[in-house]
Each structure stands twice: as C-alpha cells, then as structure tokens.
Design a protein around this nucleic acid. Structure first.
Length: 903
DNA sequence: ATAGGGTTAG
C-alpha cells in the first residue's frame, strides 16, 4: 500500500488560502470594500432629531444618520451587484405628490391597505420574506401610510428566515420614517429580537441597552442570544438583572437560563431556577420541564433528570430526547437504548434527534443490531437524511466496523458537511484503509471543503499507523500554516505520528511547543518513550506532569510500567505496579497484560503465570492478548499441563476466534512436545490464517518432522494463501534441522522468484546453517559473499556450529575471533561459540564463554528458559510465532541442534 | 427545549 502523493492531486495545497478565523460579524469601514459590520452602529438616543441620508459603499448602501454632533452608520442595505444607485434611491424614496384622483380612490386604497397588510402578514409567516418586502415597497410607492405593526411583521418574517440583510433594509426604512416610528416600543422590541435572533451580537446588545422600553420579550431575546453564542455567564447575569429591574422571567426565558446552567454545569444555579419555575407555576410547561431534564443531564445528575422526566405528565418527543441525550452524554448507553424502547412502546414519533442520540448510544457500546434498527426506523419514519442524521448513521456503522454500510449511507447523502467527510475519513483510517481515507480527503477538497483539526487528527493517525513520515510531515506543515497545531488533539496526533515514525526528537519538539498540554498529550509522549524502553525519560516526564498539576491516569502508569519492562527493569516495573495501587489507581486489563507479557518476554515465566492468577483474583477478565502472553510463558517453561488448563479456560470463556490466540495454542502444544494435539487443534480451526500454518510448520520443524513441515508449506500454497517471511524461516529451519539441502535450496529459490520476498539475514543464516551443517562450507561461503549485507554474528555462529563436525581448530579460531569482534548479541551465538570450542576440545575457552555470558546476563537464549551448554543442549523454546524475536529464536535453535524436552 | 466528527496505553 503506497500513500505516495506524487502522481495524485496534492493532498495539501502548497499555497493555501489564508484561513479566516470565524467571525460572527463582518468588519466595517465606510470606505472599505467589504461588508459593513455593526460594531460602529451607534443608534442615537433620540432618533427623531436625526436626519438620515444614504451613501453607497461599493455594493452596499449605507444609511447614515447625521445628528448635530457626529454622524454614524445606522444600518446597511445590500444592493445587487449591478444596481444603479439612482434607481435604488428613487425606489426607496417615493415622491410625496399625490395623484390627481387620490380622493376618489381613497376608499379602495383603504380596502387594499387591509388586504395588503393581511397578505404581508401571511407571506411573512410562510417565510416568503422577499415577496412580503416587495408588497411593502408597493404600499410605500402607493403612499399608503404603513402602520408600525407591518414593520413588526416584516421584522418577524426576517427572524423566521434568519435574513439579516433584509431586516437591515427594514431597519433603514424605520429610521427614514423618523418621527413616525421613533420610540415605538413594539418596533424597538422587534428590532432587538430581530438582531438577537440573527446573532448580530454587538448591534443587538447595544440597541437593547439604548432602548427606553425594555420588556420580557426583549430580555428573553438578549438572554437567548447570549446563550446561543456561548456567553452563558452573561445570559445568567441578564436573568438576575432582569429580576432586579422588576421584570418577571417567563416560561420562555427559563429554558434559556437552564440551557446556560447546563452548558456551565452550574447545577446549583440550575436547581435555583428549577425552584423558581415550580413556584411560578411553569412546572407544567413542557418547554420548561424538558429544559430541566436537559440541564440535569448536562450537569451529570441523571437521577434528577430522570425524576423530572418521570414527573412530567404530558411529555413530548423533546422531553424524551433530552433524557436520552443525557444518558448518552453520561456514558449510560444501555439506559439510553432502554429509553428508546420505552419511547417506541409509548408510540412517540421519533425525530432526527431521537435517532441521532440512539445511534450514538448504539455506536458507543458497539451494538450493531440495535443501531441497525435505529437506521431502519429513520427510513420507515421517512426522516430526511440531513447532514446530522446521515453523519450519525455513518458514525454508527463505522464504529461497529461496518464500513461498507457507512459508505452506502455516505453515497446516499445529498447534504454533506465537514463532519460527514471527517467521519467517513476516520472510518477508513480505523479499519486501516488508508488509501481510501486519502482518496476521500482529496474528494473533500474538490468539494471546496477545507480540512479542519478533526480531518488532520485523522490524517496524522493514519500516518502514524502506516509510519508514513512523508505524509505526516506534510500534514504537520498544513497544521502550522492553518493554525491547527494549537489544538491539543491535533498536537497529540502529531506527537504520536513522529513517535511511531521513529522520530522521538521531533515528537518531543512538538510536545514542548504546546503551551496547554492535556492528559492525553502527556500520555502520548510517555507512551513514545516507553515504547523505546527509555524508562528514564518516561519517568522524568511522569514527574514533570505531576509538577504541572496533571494527575497521571491509569494510562500514564501503564506506560511507566511498560518503559521499565522494555528496558528489562523488572523490579522497577513491579514496584510501580504496587505504587499505583497504593495511590488508588487500580490496574486495568492493559496494566495486567503489559505486566504479564513483559515478565514473559524477560524470561520470568513463573512470575507471568503467577501474575495471571492474581489478575483473575482481582476480577479482571483477560483478553486474547493476555492469554497469548501467558501461553508464551507456558511454552517457556514447557508447562504443558498449565497450557492445557489455559486452553480449557479459553474454551470455557469463548475467547476463541482470535487468530493470534489460535496460533498461540497450536504453538504451545507443538513446543511443549505434544505435536499430535497441536495437529488436531490445527485441523479443527476452520479459517486458517498464515500465522497458524507458520506455527504448525515450526512445530514440525522442532520435532524434526521436516517432511510434514514441507507438506504443510505446499498445502498453504495450494490453498491460495501467501506464505510470508516467517513461513520461510520456519520451513528453512525444518530443512536445516533435517539436513534437506535440495529442499532448502528450492525453498530459498521459491521465496525469491515465486513469492517475491527479499530474504533477510535470518533466511541467509538458515541457508548458511543448512549448507555448513551438511558439510558444504564452500557453498556456504559463496552464499555469504552473495549477500547484500555484511554477515552478522548469527552467520559466524552457524559456521562455528559446523566446526563441531569438522573439528577444524584453525577455522574455529578464525571464526570465533570474527564472532567476538562482532560482539555476539544473543546467547545463541555464545552457545555456538562454546560448542565449537567444545568440539575442538578447548574446554577452557568453553568456560570463558560461559563466564562471558554470565557477566552479560545472557545465560538465556532470548525466549528460552534454560540451556545447558556442553555436549548436549536442551532447550525449551519460548514464544509463539508472533514473538518479536521469532526468527532469531528459530535460528538459535537450529544453531544449537537442540532437542525438545518433552513433558 | 433536544442531535453528528478527531488524539493516548498492552
């Protein structure tokens, strides 16, 4: 899989457009070419003393009021791009001359006036604001005296349509009318409501402060606007000020105030308002009680939310939705799902909100059947597939691993936004379909949607998963150019990307550049050091985070333990394991599994098994990873009986089905000496993955059953599966163990020409071993010369092992010098060395090598629990086929010509 | 009055 972008549309544009910060309101300047903003709108105290004139500002017509002292912009009228100023002016300023037959027509004018007003009103209610304004203009042109209510209706129409610019035109005409409408409470209130609803924050609040007549409606509008725009404290302050000035917050204000409490999680204030609402008799208002349910849910008080909910006699769908949202928010997904069931039983018609929340709950607990029902109900109910509903469905399918279904919904959606795209992208990333994710990114860009921090977090995660440093760097640069790198989530993903691409220095650089690190970011950096076994750096960071008042989570502790284990510091790891518990952090599944596998990998098989028992006593259910680690310890200790017990546990707890686990079990039986049982288990597995074949082949190889091993390799090929590098290591080892030179050579050739695999040092090592064991040292040396790399210690080890046969003192001397120069890095090589000395009878040297091994702490073959150096070597091979050093282990065994000790 | 997206540990 290639993520190269060379021949594709570049994912990240090299010269991105400036990334504008979202602005609630456009800037203003009379001589600027941009749209005027409202920040400089400064309504005069007494509009009737003002004269209003109109100026054109590029495409904008601006109403300017000139009072005696200064002139300021009052409102703006957008003009169509090619509008002629003159016509526009005459259009807005009808002549004052009366038509000659005015009086004759007066009666019919009155009739048409009424019908016009009625028509305007109904047009406004239908949301046809433009048509209403046209009719209104017609009335003005006909010199009909327009009553204040009409302006109110029109403004209300603009509120429905959220049409800011048309409302501004109405405002301008109100100002033009000067004396007639000045100080009209109804109009002023409507204007405040209009600007508030359109989220024109500064105009609305300024105007509200200016108007002489405040009332419950304008207060409600201002509080609501503050709430919507996230100024929750201001909203609540408004409520207090309102009460203070003697206005009585009604059942329209209370929901907004409750919303602010919910957003701030101020449950105390929320409860106060709850009390007020009950006293005022709003308890029966479904708007108020639904808001209470929502507020308690947002504050995490689900019992209270439920109590309010249960006390509502006439619930509507919003009430149900609010409670369900609360459950989802507080992680009580099962409750949310139960509630949906009750809602259905109550014959409540679900809305998009219902389905979205229900799907969130289903996605969170990975309940495919439940979620599918939600999708079906949405279809049956004929709900429109909006961006939000569609996104919820996509999120659900991708979280339960049904990416194809997510794709289908995605293709059906007419209305997609950045969230929709981000969901499908992260869905692909999560299932490892990185190319598809990148393709979606390109499509997203071609639809003129910009990548945001969420897109980049997914992209960085994709780069991390594939160790694609090039893509990662490009993404990082994009983040810098577009100010996305200040987002901690993005920063975490960048740090993780650099760490997984083996650039710990870059990771640390990015980490250090973040000013407000959160827990996840600290944990990301800790994990990066831990993975490398840099326990010192991990620990330093661990202390540093606490100095900066970020309390470590169980994840942080897990990294500390991992760091020590990766560095072989078993005692320190165990100490940390105890420390975390004394500080009240309970080890979780990951902690136990880290500990168990760390102990196993460091050769502490008994301790690993002991820890596994402790884990069960602590009531933590192991998963397949834990079992694999324990099995590797069983193999290590050749504890067939315990391995069988684990097998029983796996069967009882239905943990089967995992490929690594099945592989491990086959491996365990094979390596613990029960090859027949291994074969029986192997045959029982229906869908056999390549690693399971590898385990079985390795088992046969270890038992010297090379013919069976090669037959299995053939079978693997016949079944159309692709042998991998480990398959060849094991099969070559079988040949080498049984001295099957021709078969080995054939395998080696197959590997290169038929399966296009590049032999690694290990494969060359196997071949050298095979050739030299069969006495064909010339061929072995020829192969070494043809290798694309310098021979390593293993190769010399192999050759040394061959010296046992030849008792060639000179060659032993030469090879052992070479090997010692290379500083043999595992005990296998030392063993080979010592065996070679033993073969030529240099027992002093044998003792020297043993001593060397002891001082280097290498008395163990990696993954092998015990060896006996000398004429006979007994080895218990540890590790399953996914052991990180499996190739080395297999080779070491080949070197040793070891015997399996059967139990 | 209610709804959708991203990052960390074995």
């Amino acid at each position: 899989m290639s993520c190269s972008l060379r021949h594709e549309t570049p994912l990240f544009p090299s010269r991105p457009a400036k990334f504008p910060k979202p602005r609630p309101e456009p800037p203003i300047s009379l001589n600027s070419t941009t749209e005027p903003s409202f920040s400089s709108i400064n309504p005069p105290h007494n509009p009737c003393q003002c004269q209003t004139s109109l100026f054109q500002c590029e495409r904008w017509l601006v109403a300017i009021s000139s009072s005696s002292s200064n002139s300021s912009c009052m409102a703006s009228l957008p003009l169509p791009p090619n509008a002629n100023l003159q016509t526009q002016l005459s259009f807005s300023k009808p002549t004052q001359t009366l038509s000659p037959n005015f009086h004759e027509n007066h009666k019919s004018f009155q009739l048409s006036y009424k019908s016009h007003c009625h028509q305007i009103s109904s047009l406004c209610k239908q949301g046809q604001i433009q048509e209403a304004v046209d009719l209104f203009t017609k009335m003005e042109l006909e010199n009909l005296q327009v009553q204040p209510e009409i302006y109110g209706e029109l403004l209300q129409g603009c509120v429905y349509a959220r049409d800011l610019s048309t409302g501004q035109q109405i405002h301008a005409r109100i100002i033009k009318n000067g004396e007639f409408l000045a100080g009209n409470e109804y109009i002023e209130t409507k204007l405040v409501i209009f600007y508030s609803k359109c989220d024109a924050y500064s105009v609305a609040s300024r105007m509200f402060r200016m108007v002489s007549s405040k009332n419950v409606f304008s207060w409600a509008a201002i509080i609501g606007m503050n709430c919507r725009m996230g100024f929750c404290e201001e909203a609540l302050l408004g409520l207090l000020e309102m009460l203070d000035s003697g206005y009585v917050p009604d059942n329209f204000v209370v929901p907004n105030a409750l919303k602010a409490c919910g957003a701030l999680q101020w449950i105390g204030v929320g409860k106060g308002i709850h009390g007020y609402a009950i006293k005022m008799g709003y308890g029966t208002c479904v708007f108020v009680s639904s808001s209470l349910v929502d507020m308690y849910g947002k504050c995490g008080a689900m019992e209270d939310a439920r109590m309010v909910f249960d006390g509502i006699p006439e619930k509507n769908v919003v009430t149900w939705n609010s409670l369900m949202v609360g459950y989802v928010l507080n992680g009580e997904n099962e409750e949310a799902i139960k509630l949906f069931y009750n809602l259905r039983m109550d014959s409540v018609k679900p809305t998009q909100v219902t389905i979205s929340s229900y799907l969130s709950a289903s996605a969170n607990i990975g309940a495919p059947d439940e979620g599918k029902q939600g999708h079906s109900i949405a279809v049956v109910e004929g709900l429109v597939l909006t961006a939000i509903l569609g996104s919820s469905i996509i999120n659900f399918y991708s979280k339960v691993g049904l990416i194809e279904d997510a794709e289908l919904v995605f293709s059906q959606m007419a209305e997609k936004d950045a969230v929709t795209w981000n969901l499908i992208i992260s869905g692909y990333v999560q299932v490892g379909k990185i190319d598809k994710a990148l393709g979606m990114c390109r499509r997203m860009r071609s639809e003129k949607l910009r990548f945001d921090s969420v897109t980049l977090a997914s992209l960085m995660s994709a780069s991390a998963d594939t160790s694609n440093l090039k893509l990662g760097k490009e993404g990082h640069c994009y983040c810098i150019r577009n100010n996305l790198d200040s987002d901690v989530v993005v920063a975490s993903s960048i740090v993780d990307m650099y760490a997984k691409c083996k650039r710990i220095d870059c990771a640390r650089g990015v980490f250090d550049s973040v000013t407000k690190a959160d827990l996840v970011l600290w944990n990301t950096m800790l994990a990066a050091y831990a993975e490398l076994g840099q326990s010192g750096e991990t620990l330093k960071l661990f202390y540093k985070m606490q100095l900066e008042s970020v309390p470590p989570s169980v994840i942080s502790w897990n990294s500390i333990i991992l760091g020590f284990l990766k560095n072989g510091q078993i005692d320190e790891a165990k100490d940390m394991f105890l420390q975390m518990q004394s500080l009240g952090i309970q080890p979780n599944l990951v902690t136990w599994t880290t500990l168990i596998s760390g102990l196993a990998e460091n050769g502490f098989g008994f301790e690993a098994i002991f820890a596994f028992q402790k884990m069960q006593e602590a009531g933590i259910r192991p998963n397949s990873l834990t079992i694999v680690s324990v099995l590797s310890s069983c193999i290590d200790m050749a504890m067939l009986q315990y391995g069988k017990a684990i097998h029983g546990y796996v069967t009882r707890h239905v943990l089967c089905g995992s490929v690594p686990l099945a592989t491990s079990l086959v491996d365990m039986y094979a390596k613990c000496g029960n090859i027949d049982k291994a074969k029986r288990l192997f045959d029982m597995i229906e869908e056999k993955a390549v690693p399971i074949y590898n385990a079985m082949i390795s088992g046969y190889a270890l038992h010297g059953q090379a013919v069976e091993a090669l037959a299995l390799y053939k079978r693997l090929e016949e079944e159309g599966k692709k042998p991998d590098s480990i398959t060849f290591t094991n099969a070559l080892y079988a040949c080498s163990h049984s001295g099957l030179v021709n078969e080995g050579l054939e395998l080696f050739a197959d590997m290169v020409s038929k399966h296009h695999l590049k032999p690694s040092m290990v494969h060359y090592g196997c071949m050298v071993n095979l050739l030299s064991r069969c006495g064909n040292l010339d061929e072995a040396f020829r192969l070494i010369n043809s290798m694309p790399f310098e021979p390593d210690a293993h190769i010399f080890g192999s050759l040394l092992a061959a010296c046992r046969e030849h008792n060639n003192t000179d060659l032993t001397k030469y090879l052992s010098e070479k090997l010692l120069e290379l500083e043999p890095d595992n005990s296998g090589n030392y063993v080979a060395l010592s065996n070679a000395y033993a073969a030529v009878g240099q027992w002093d040297e044998v003792e020297n090598v043993r001593h060397l091994m002891k001082t280097k702490g290498l008395m163990k073959v990696p993954g092998c629990s015990w060896i006996q150096i000398g004429e006979e070597s007994h080895v218990f091979l540890a590790g399953d086929q996914s052991h990180p050093k499996i190739e080395e282990i297999n080779l070491t065994l080949a070197l040793l010509g070891s015997q399996i000790l059967c139990t």
